[in-house]
Amino acid sequence: MAVDLKLRNSFGNVSIILMDDHLVELEHSYTSDRVRRIRYDRVESVVRWRVLPLGRMAIVGLLVAVPGLLMMFSSEQVFVTMGTAFLTIAACIEAIYIYAGKTHISIMRAGREFKLAGVVRPHKVDRLLNRMEADIRRTQEEATPSTSDESIELESTSESTESDTASPHIS
């Protein structure tokens, strides 16, 4: 799959793609996607937490579980069977929502907060965040010349000075 993570929201789907030095967030609509890019160079923190999607669970309960429950009280066998099926479906959906939960990701970059949220399985979020953390650290390390480079230059200079004095030049 080319998309690294797909978040399902109440108002549409959001896809996240991790590029080399930035993250792309795509809000899908019918014929185009709204693009937002978050560069890694000035990312300060990434916060992740999970909550229960109570709104969606309530909607599933109202639309699926309650009619199923009402059908169970009917004397007709067909309705009782349909009610059982509805309740089973509602129970499965609620279990999925409880397992996956609604994941929120907040990325703080240069004082601005970028929020991402949606229902997605936890291990997919773990995989995305592990890769994103590695990419962010690599991007920030590459952009910063480390002080160890200066010490290596000093050591090589001192070594070359010592070798010049130790071994006389043979013409």
Binding site: D41, R42, S45, V46, V47, L129, Q140, T144
Partner: peptide, 14 residues
């Protein structure tokens, strides 16, 4: 009582 995972980084100065 909020719980979550936090990762901090070394942002580059602009």
């Amino acid at each position: 009582a909020w719980r979550g995972t936090v990762m901090t980084f070394h942002p580059i100065d602009l």
